[in-house]
Each structure stands twice: as C-alpha cells, then as structure tokens.
Design a protein around this nucleic acid. Structure first.
Lengths: 333, 333
DNA sequence: TTGTATGCGTTATCAT
DNA sequence: ATGATAACGCATACAA
C-alpha cells in the first residue's frame, strides 16, 4: 500500500480510504489511486485488514462437502455474503476433522460468526461458544437458546409426501430412514404421524437408512427381502437415488411397480433422467435467512434469537403414480 | 497472548515460543503456559501470525464443489497440508465466481502457493501469476512452463478400457465425450487411438457429452436414437451414471445388454448398487504429490518445474461383460 | 531459559 | 481533502 501511496504522491491513509470506499477523498485522487494500484498489481491484504479491524468481517460455515444439499446451500451463501461485504470462510468436515477442529480453525481466522449446517455434535455443545461468536444453525432440529436457527419444517414435508401417495391410492408406503442425520427425526415423525392420520398405522414401515446413496441402497436391499410396498419415501434425495438403483437392478420399475419420493430437491446432484418426485427445501431462501440472521446478530448482539421455520413444498415429478393392482394384496390391514 | 503471558508471569515472546513448539522454553514453563491458555480459552490468531511471518503458511486450492473427483482430492489435501504444517484455504468455483475472482481472494489471504484443479482458464493465463505464487496444476492437460503439473495419463486410461472391452469381444464401443473439461481431450484421444490400433476405426463413435450426470444422460439419449453399441465408455463416472439411468429406464440392461465403463473411480459419489467398472485415478497419491510439490517449491523457488504423470488403473467391476449375440450385427465393419 | 524491542499491512484517530 | 501516528496480535533478532 505504501508503494501505491508513493506512486500517487499521497499518504497511505488516503489510499486506505480509497480502497475501502470510505468518504474523504476527491474523485480525482480515487482515480489516480486505482490506476497506480492496477499498474503495481496491488492487492489489499485480508490478513492485515482483519487484524486491524476490531470487528472482523469474516464469517465461517461448517458443512459437509459430500452432501449436495449443504454444498448448494454454501454456494448460495458465498454469493450472499459477498454482497453483504463479508468474507465467508469454508470449514468443511472431512475424514479426521470433526466439528471441534473445524470450529477452532475458523475461530483462529477471527470469524465473528459461524453458520453450522451439518449434524455432528449436539447443539448444547455449541451453546457455550455462542457467547464467543454469533452462531446460526441451519437445518437442525434444535430450538436453540443463544443460537439462531433456520430450519425446514421437515415433518410437514414428509406429511405432504404421504398425503400425495395416499391420494394416488397407495397404502403400503415404506420409509427409508435418515438415522441421526439433521432433520431425520422430524421427517420420520412426520411420516409416522401422517400414516397414522390416514388410518394406516398397520402399514408403517421404517427401514434403517441414512443420507447418502450407500444408505439408500442398503435400505432398499432390506426391503427386497420382504414383501414390497407400493411406494417408498426416502429420507433425502441421495438415499432415494441409491434405493432406486437397487430397485431397477432387480427388475422393479419406477414408478409403475413402485412409486418413489425423495427429500431436499437440490438442483445439484439431481439426475435428469430420474426426474425424482421430491420435497423441496427452498435453499436460496434458507441461505439468505442464515446469512442475514448472522450479520444482524453481529450488529445487534443482544437481539433475541431468531427461530425461523420454512415450509417445504412437494414437487411432483415422474417417480410417483398410482399403485398397481397387486397393491390390493397389501390393502387389507 | 498478553493475557496468557501475564497469567503465567512471563513475557509474550516466551508464550509465542511455547505455542509454536519452538526451542527455548523449559518444560515447566510450557506446561504452565498451556494451562493458563486453556483456562483463558486462548487461541492463536492466524491473521496476526500470517501477517508477521514473512513467508506465509497459507496455501490455497481452486476447485469445483460439484465434482466428486475434485472434492475427494481436496479432502485428501486438507489432511496432508495439516500434516505439513500449512493451512489450506478453499477457493471453490461457484456460480458467479470465476477463476480470477477466486485467485484474487486467495491471494489476499497471502496464500504462498496455489493448487489449481478445475478447468476454467487456460494455463497460459496462470503463467504470469506463477511469478507471484507457487502454482501446481492437477489433472490438467498442460505441460507448464513455470508451473508444476501433477496429472494422470488419461490416454492410457481410456486405452486400458478399450483393451478390456475388446478382449471381452466388443467391437461396437461408443465413447461419451467430456467436452473441454480437464483431461477430456486426452481421454478422447486415447479412445480413438486404441480403437484404431485394434482395427476398429469404423466403430469409433464419439458422442458429445460432459462431466456430470446431465451430460451423460443427454449423450445416452442421443445414442438411443441410433443403433446401439454393445459397450459404452464415459468420460468420467458421473457421466456414466447419467447414461446408465437413461439406459435402464429404456429397458436396456447393464451389463447384459450393454457394457459400461466410467472414469475416475472416486469413492465419494460411487453408488454401491451400480458397481461401476471404472478407470481409477490414484487420488490420495495425486493429492500428496500436489501438496509436496507446492511446499517443495516454496522452499526452493528456483527448482525446475515438476511434471509428474501418474498411470491410471482399470478397475473391473460389474458393469462390463462379453457382448450379446446381437453384437454380431455390428461386427461387420 | 527468558525478556526487550521492532515491524508485518492495515485502519482509525486526530490533526492540518 | 489530506497527512502523521498509534495500534491490532504475533514472530523474530538480539540482548540479558
């Protein structure tokens, strides 16, 4: 920065003003500073900036690189935070790097706020941290004390899916569970309650599964050993995809033999040929809410925690249709 | 840090020594420093550290969050860089953030070295930068001037795949192309040359495609309008998966009707039910080579550029088998 | 083994 | 509108 100042013949302070877009510099000076900077290939030093600024302009996000839903969320957050004038540092979980490690690294970079997406530790482990940094949880099932929470009404989502299937005439509807992943419990509860409300208690089947293709495939394999349902709901899209592959490879056509519904409806990871009926979470909106909640909290630390629940929406596509005749075989509870 | 020093009753410099693990502090002091730090919840400030150290301990990696191969590479690099004592900053491409922007942000954080994975700009655009920071390219088809290059012998990979299929009796082998993605040209060339070497010039069919499921599905759809081959090679795994879904949905069984081979063999994104025959790139090894090349260059800036090409390995799994009888129909060139 | 002093690049305060 | 100067948290050279 000194070089630029020398080149223009002004003080460092002025160059700083120009680069921050702060007031107190003539237009002529601004132009000359930018010119000189371009010629010298000058680039502001984020490290020094962060050090000097009392309140850091760094935000961090904890997530899993392997979950399309989270990746898409992060992509949205990246552009939003840029618009808000913050740097968003990525803190991916990876083999051997658990939540604590990632948080630690992010904090070393002076992140004043953290968005936590994945599951990992329980929310209560974050509460103490919330006194140190602003924390927003996304997609978890918690109602935090000090934490802001942006979540999806997962139970409503699975309920919509059940309603849809029942309306199509299905009764034997199996659920491929999401285990202890974020939102999984609500989704499972929503399925159970909805089935019960439709008088289908006897048809409730929750198959152990998870959030990735492996889990879906394993769950589907379990189903194959038993009497098949006429419809399957999966805890999320990758799970549905994994199940679908197993089904198809065993000669079971979707949707003519079995209807299939996923959850998330992330555009990334969506396989066009499959055209999966799925429960959509409004990812761009969740990203925006999370980032604004975080920034808002930084500006007003004593604001009372936000707890925003979004309503998902079933997107009907090509993997659901009415049950075959053989479904009658199951209809007797 | 001053707080810790006060608490223990020593100077800041000593605390610094202890935290860096440098020599010059008694064991007793070390213990007391760590104790005090734990009590106060002290955490070293990466920003200040980076600012003070002349040679930064920050590295950066440019990649796409949406490509499983690259994500897996990055996951490996994360743990490796940690072991080497460097921080690896993530610079993901995302909608609206092109290569130049990402590089700029990484450089602001004083990354002394960059690993560039994705395609985006051509290598010649990086050459000028290479005087400013150490740059390692991974997976590209370039032979750089100032840049280190770690790559896979893509042509050998597709050749192995062709050899395998020919050995099984296939002749009508179509190739779903990767467009202008990294490595795609070599893979295509390898296919062409291998086919030619087997006297199958007349069977060469390169279908326009790309590196994700969408591309694979679209390419497969094109194939469906024509006479089907007995085997399909895809430019990478997602492309193969996309094609597979289209095939299966049209009642074409894999491998009994058509054999299918992918490329990359990343464990992440691998769908267990599919059991795809694929050309494996040794991702952990590539990650290690890239990181060590980068660190090595930082320590010896004048070292002449490394250009390491790894040999891929065909992993035969469940999607390839001998052609059906009807393949005879194509066997007359 | 330990302490003192200086500077990294930037921002912010206070002058001018 | 512009300049001088201190301070951010830390690492390092040097002195003790």
């Amino acid at each position: 920065m000194g070089d630029v100042a020398d080149r223009v013949g002004v003080s460092q302070a002025l160059v700083s003003i120009v680069f921050r877009g702060a007031e107190g510099a003539s237009d002529a000076t601004r132009r000359r500073v930018f010119e000189a900077a371009a010629e010298l290939g000058y680039r502001p030093d984020s490290l020094a900036q962060g050090l000097r600024r009392n309140r850091s302009r760094n935000l961090g996000v904890l997530f899993s690189l392997r979950r399309p839903f989270e990746v898409e969320l992060v992509e949205n957050m990246l552009s939003i935070s840029k618009g808000l004038g913050y740097d968003l540092l990525l803190g991916p979980f990876s083999p051997g790097r658990e939540q604590d490690d990632v948080i630690d690294e992010l904090l070393r970079y002076r992140c004043a706020g953290l968005v936590v997406v994945g599951p990992q530790l329980h929310a209560r482990d974050l509460e103490p941290l919330a006194r140190e940094v602003a924390i927003v949880e996304v997609g978890r099932d918690v109602t935090g004390g000090l934490l802001d929470v942006i979540r999806n009404d997962d139970a409503v989502g699975t309920r919509q899916a059940v309603d849809h299937l029942v309306q199509l005439g299905h009764r034997a509807i199996a659920y491929l569970d999401g285990g202890d992943n974020p939102g999984a419990q609500s989704r499972r509860d929503g399925y159970r309650t909805a089935m019960s409300d439709h008088g289908l208690d006897g048809q409730i089947r929750v198959v152990p599964g998870g959030y990735d293709e492996n889990d879906g495939a394993a769950a589907a394999a379990l189903l194959l050993d038993q009497r098949l349902p006429t419809a399957i709901m999966a805890a999320n899209d990758p799970c549905a995809i994994g199940a679908l592959d197993i089904l198809v490879r065993h000669g079971i056509a979707v949707p003519s033999d079995i209807s299939l519904i996923g959850y998330d409806d992330a555009t990334f990871g969506r396989i066009p040929g499959i055209d999966l009926t799925s429960v959509r979470q409004d990812i761009p909106k969740m990203a925006r809410l999370a980032m604004t909640a975080l920034v808002d909290r930084l500006e007003r630390p004593d604001r009372k925690p936000v707890n925003k629940t979004l309503r998902p929406k079933l997107i009907v596509r090509g993997t659901t249709t009415g049950p075959r005749e053989r479904s009658v075989e199951f209809s007797v509870v």
